[in-house]
Every structure is written in structure tokens, then in C-alpha cells.
Write a protein that binds this DNA or RNA. Structure first.
Lengths: 230, 230
DNA sequence: ACCCAAGTGGAACGGTCGGCCCGTTTCTGC
DNA sequence: GCAGAAACGGGCCGACCGTTCCACTTGGGT
């Protein structure tokens, strides 16, 4: 390297000072991981990621020593989108409407990416980039909740922990139903929203429940995949 | 064996026609599995169960060839309790009150036994005993829902699928929070109930949300355990 | 008391996973 | 081009899982 590598906090930022082919492999790894995580959820083996990316196991390990590092890099941009969702909700002139939109958007993101659903329900102390975004979004969320309560449409007994609980519950539903009953989460969110809403508050209509056969298929699928395997 | 072994549907009923020591081992296996499943959830390795039971892996495999068989035997009695919960709710002179009690009881059972939480959210076509109980409870549940709706306290837009969704969501919450925030599920059920209830219906007060620190601890624990690993 | 079959546990095997090392390839600055 | 360093990937190791086989133990009927 001619140019001194400056500081470059290892594994955190994009990938400066990497050789061209190395950077290319890094991207292939990230793309492969993104693909696998989205469909299978976190918990796919590092070896699978390497295989999917078409690189050796060693290359993966050199670029991302631990699973946390990889997750951190893969979901950095998605956490941006997450933080943006709160900002967008705050920008809504009607905080209650913004709040509803926020919940829906975040849960939809969970449904669209099983890996992201997992990420939102756990915290990686080592993943600085992710945690920074999370903290940022968290602050804004508190503000959104306060404003929504001020409109009188969000119940006073609602707490910010309820958001976390909803995300955890939704992650469970999304993981369990998978593509066998992909709209189940909408029903869950609809119910929760109805509980959050103060009497008389405007809320969107409750989405229809999934067909019983679809739910049944999801349950059978679960029993075959294995419970924790997910 | 002097007495002919009659029919003895293999692997289904308790364990007739087994030699004394074999039956003893069978019980040790069941006890060990019950212990492990309750705390770790389904998905513990068969090898772990054998180790915990203090028997060889072969013995386990001889008694319960597949994980389904073992699960079927372990949770047979708990499924009885599950079916009883519906019956008890049906016996309540106030169907709405019985309905509330039923949801609470079942979710409490999930919280008390992570393995059972998993069992309720998946179906094992091969486990006849379990599925029979489930079907029986299901029929009674439909009746309970109908009666609860007739009181006017349960909303008309409630469907029996909502029960399944609640169980799935609750299983996710119980699994995720574990013993780091063990009362989180009460808050979830409280919210759902508030959405199920028609305006003016009597509902128990919403339980307090868990402390934020407790939820945070649960999230960290999750990231260490691994997502699907459960 | 005896004897055979039922029952047992350990060993071996194939499979996957994660971590590490090392010979080889390929980029890049000169 | 050339040389050296950076990066690569395959291979090896130890761990765990589930399955199968086999020599040994033990129960229980006569």
C-alpha cells in the first residue's frame, strides 16, 4: 500500500484500502449474505454464505471474523431505512397517522426480510454502526410517541416498550408463517393498533385473517423445519 | 413374553409389554426430555436428551426413533391440560369471562414451558395422540368463540385464526424474552384482548410493561444464543 | 437355579460446522 | 514487465449430531 491506511476501524466502515479483487469479493459476500439472511433468517452457517458467495471459507473469515461483524455490515443500510421510517413519521403533520404508518412500515420491513426481523429483536453490543442507528431511531421514536399521545389518539398507557414487544411478536409471526401465510403479520399489527388507539381514534380497518388452510400449512412447515432451526 | 403382546400400536401408548428396566429407562428419558424441552425449547439434540437421561444414544433411538415420537410422548399429558382448559372455559357461566380465562391459561402454559409453546404453534401429522387432542380442543374452542360472541362482548370480526396467531406471537415473545423478562407475554395478551373486546366489554386491566432494562437484557441474550438456535 | 431373549451402552461412521494454516494465485506500484 | 505483498482457496483439525452395528448384561419365566 502506498497511501498509508490511515485509521480504518477494522471491519466497521465499507472497505477502504482494500485491493480491488478483495473489495469485489467483499461485495459478493455481502450480496450472498443479504440473499440468504432475507429468506432463511440469521443463523445460516458461515460456510453456507461462503458457498453462496463462491469464495473460500477463509476469505469470508478474513473479511468478517465473526457473524456479528457480517450482520453489522449487511444490515447497515437497512438500519438507515429503519431510522428514516421514524423520521418520516415525525414529518407527518398528524403524529397519530405518522405513528400508524411507522408501525406498519417497520413490520413490513420485518416481513420482507427475515434476517432484519431478527436484527430488530436483538442487539449486538459489538456492532457499533448498527447500535448507533438503533439509538438514533430510538430517540426519535420517543418523540413520536409523545406527540402521538398529545393528539389524544394514542392511549396514555402505551409505552415505548410496547413497540419492542410488537417487534418481537411480529418477528415470531413472520418467522413462523414464512411464505405459507405471508399476510398474517398484518392481522397482528391491526389488532395491536386497535389496542393502542384511544376510543374514537381513527384506525385503518382490521385486515382479514389468513385462510385457516394457510395457517395450517405454516404450522406443518414449522414442524418439518424444526423449531429453533428457523 | 408369555402373554401375547396384543396389538400395542408402536410408540403411541405409554409403554406396554416393555421389560421392567426398559420401562424405567423410558421414564428417565421422558423426564429428561421434559426438563430440557421446558427450559431450552424443542430443538435440543437427541444426544443431549440421552446424556441428560443417563442412557446411551442407542437406547433413546430404540425407544423413540424420531423427534416427533418423543415430543408426542412428552407432551401428551400437557395436551390433556390444554384440552381441559377449553372445557373449563366452556363450563364458565359467562362465556366471555371463560374466553378471557382460556387465553390467559393457554398463554401461561406457553410461558411456563417453552417446548409446549413450540408444540402449540406447529402440528405434527405423525403424532396421532397429540393431533387428536388438538382437534378435540379445536372443536370446543369454536363453540366457546360462538358463545362469547353471543354475549356481545367478543367482537364479530374475531376469528378462530386469531387464536392461532396469538399463540404464534406469544410463542415468539416467550422464546425471545425467556427468563430475562418473563412477564412480557402478559402485556401482549392484554393488548390483544383489548382488541378482541367489543366496546364496553369488561376486560382485566392492562398489565404493566416490563422494565426497559429487562427487555434490553432479553435482546442481548438473544444475540448471544443465536436467533434460530433458541 | 438356569437359560434365552430383550435390552443395553459404547464404538464406528458419515455429515456439517467453525477455525486455522499454508502453498498458490493475482493485483499493483514501480 | 517485474517483484513483492496482498489476497485467495483448499485442506486439515476438533466438535457435535444422528444412525447403525455389536458384544455384553440383565430380567424373568420355567
Amino acid at each position: 500500500m502506498t497511501s498509508p491506511p490511515s485509521d480504518q476501524t477494522p471491519g466497521q466502515q465499507p472497505g477502504p484500502g482494500l485491493r480491488a479483487d478483495a473489495e469485489r469479493n467483499r461485495c459478493r459476500i455481502l450480496a450472498a449474505a443479504r440473499r440468504l439472511y432475507a429468506t432463511e433468517g440469521l443463523g445460516v452457517s458461515m460456510a453456507s454464505v461462503a458457498r453462496e458467495a463462491g469464495v473460500g471459507k477463509a476469505t469470508l473469515g478474513r473479511r468478517f471474523a465473526t457473524r456479528e461483524e457480517l450482520v453489522n455490515a449487511v444490515f447497515a443500510d437497512r438500519m438507515d431505512a429503519y431510522a428514516d421510517a421514524v423520521a418520516e413519521a415525525l414529518a407527518d403533520p398528524d403524529p397519530w397517522h405518522g405513528f400508524i404508518g411507522y408501525l406498519h412500515a417497520v413490520c413490513a420491513m420485518q416481513a420482507a426480510d427475515r434476517g432484519f426481523a431478527d436484527v430488530l429483536t436483538m442487539t449486538f453490543p459489538a456492532a457499533k454502526a448498527l447500535e448507533a442507528r438503533r439509538a438514533e431511531a430510538y430517540e426519535r421514536l420517543l418523540e413520536l410517541i409523545t406527540r402521538a399521545k398529545d393528539t389524544g389518539h394514542l392511549r396514555e398507557d402505551f409505552t415505548h416498550q410496547d413497540v419492542v414487544i410488537l417487534l418481537i411478536a411480529n418477528a415470531g409471526v413472520v418467522t413462523a408463517t414464512g411464505d405459507a401465510a405471508p399476510d398474517t403479520w398484518r392481522r397482528l399489527v391491526g389488532h395491536m393498533l386497535r389496542s393502542y388507539a384511544a376510543p374514537g381514534a381513527p384506525i385503518p380497518p382490521l385486515p382479514d385473517a389468513p385462510r385457516p388452510t394457510a395457517l395450517y400449512r405454516a404450522m406443518v412447515r414449522l414442524s418439518q423445519t424444526g423449531p429453533g432451526t428457523a
